[in-house]
Amino acid sequence: MIELKGLKKNFGRLTVLDDLDLEIPSGQATGIVGPNGSGKTTTIKSILGLVKPTDGEIRIDGELVNNRWEYREKIGYMPQVARYPENMTVEELFRFIKNIRGDQPSNEEELIKHFGLESELKKRMRTLSGGNRQKVGAVLSMMFNPDILIFDEPTAGLDPRSSVQFKKKVRELKDQGKTIMLTTHIMSEIEELADHLIFIVEGKIKYHGPMDELLNEHKEQRLEGAVAKMMEEEAA
């Protein structure tokens, strides 16, 4: 379980996260939605320790993780804009990360096959297309079999076929009882994958709960309509 308590983040005068309280349950998939610039990525980066919160507590499985690093063993992360050392080949990158992890067991071969990256292994990261880079990011996030997986707009830039492959993999991971957190602007993806929904606007949580409740509440058939309604209410 990931718990955020009173999480605050200011970038200079700009408040990005405003006293955020959040619980992300274990063994389930949680989708985070919200308008652009609402603090989704900052929330994720705070959990990973990439962004240092101004104030607040982050606990993973009950353990305070602010300014710690060991806990990241448990997390696989796929960034929104995947940037990798340009001169490394895909193969070298995987080997390097394995070295950094102290040769932890990994299932990268199966993942490379799943995402169809075999023909890209010898290419340098610089020459890879955006979609293939995303796939490399997906493999990196999953290869050490982490308990928690965090995907930041994972399917942006993937072609439909790869996107289906990715979602298939995420469902598999969910069935294995992993905790999954993902942000996206594609509502159908959340409908397909997530059990819980978090709606963030301007660094504050506007809705947090199971998906079906939200649909009932707004008397909508589809999530897209319900979320759009919430965004309109916010704007009004």
Partner: peptide
């Protein structure tokens, strides 16, 4: 080394 740094920061690394 920015990309390199960002990649490694998400790893279990001090």
């Amino acid at each position: 080394s920015r990309e390199f740094t960002e990649l490694l920061l998400a790893q279990p690394l001090n």
